[in-house]
Simulated assay, not measured.
Amino acid sequence: MRILLVEDDAMIGDAVRTSLRQDGYAVEWVRDGRAAEAALSAEHFDLVLLDLGLPDKDGIAVLQSLRQRKQTIPVIVITARDGVGERIKGLDAGADDYVVKPFDMDELGARIRSALRRSSGHAEPEIEVMGVRLNPATREVTRDGRPVMLSAREYAVVEALMLRPGAILSRAQLEERMYAWGEEVESNTVEVHIHGARRKLGSDFIQNVRGVGYFVPKPGAKT
């Protein structure tokens, strides 16, 4: 999962990025509103963490512009503006959640997982496809009740596919979910991690449409 972090405070930005990367997210960090809009126009992100007091363009203006373009990406506001009026303004502008600084990283992580579940249409905390069960909160994966240890990249691929069973994701789409903007991507990285996931979860779990991409079958589908 790729997250755009928009935060002008160097200490907070570095701490949040480090923590989220340790949790397996690909994080792109920008420090002003104009850079945020450029990133959102050029790249795919699964979620935005948005400060409000930004240089060049205020966070509320960035959020309003995003919603005016009909982009439904989840946005969690992270800000020191703790007044009730400010919270109402942020939520009315289109924020999915509002977190006041200073915040606990474990709580922020839970709010991120909740927003991602809602955006993918999964209200339940766990996802199950073909006997494979994934818990985004704990990042635990089981197959037929037995725990399976996936690498961070393998997990990113499996999570992206399980969130949209039956949908074919291209190699480029999977790379977007594994790497932050500008990170170097090896030419065969997707194939390597899919091979590793298949070895652990079963050769029939992740399927390939040659020249198009990869998918996991919908629950109940014939394979």
Rank of each mutant, 00 (worst) to 15 (best):
G213P: 07
L20H: 03
G90I: 03
R17V: 06
R164V: 13
G166W: 03
R111F: 10
Y25M: 02
E186H: 08
G109D: 14
A35V: 05
M1E: 13
V62F: 04
V157K: 04
F205D: 03
G85E: 10
D9M: 11
Q68Y: 12
V75F: 03
I127H: 05
G202A: 11
R2L: 07
Q71T: 12
R117Q: 11
Y155Q: 06
I12W: 02
P125G: 01
E43R: 13
K57D: 13
L91H: 09
N188Y: 13
A95N: 04
K200G: 08
E28S: 13
G59C: 03
A156G: 02
E175T: 09
Q173M: 12
A38H: 14
M149P: 13
L5T: 00
Q22H: 15
D51W: 00
P219F: 05
Q173D: 14
G53R: 14
E154G: 13
H195R: 15
L91K: 07
I3C: 03
V100H: 07
V16E: 01
L50V: 11
R2W: 11
Q64G: 06
T79S: 07
V100S: 07
Y155G: 05
T142F: 01
R21K: 07
R177E: 05
D92T: 08
P165Y: 02
P102A: 09
A115Y: 07
V185A: 10
Q68P: 10
Y98Q: 03
L66P: 07
G213L: 01
Y155L: 11
E37Y: 13
V216K: 00
D9S: 09
T223H: 15
V6W: 06
L40R: 03
L169N: 09
L50K: 06
R117P: 06
R17P: 06
Y155H: 10
P165V: 00
S120R: 12
A123L: 12
L63A: 01
M11C: 14
L163K: 10
V157T: 06
E86G: 04
V30S: 00
L161A: 04
K70G: 07
Y179F: 14
M149V: 15
I112D: 02
A35R: 05
E43K: 09
A80P: 05
L174C: 04
V129L: 06
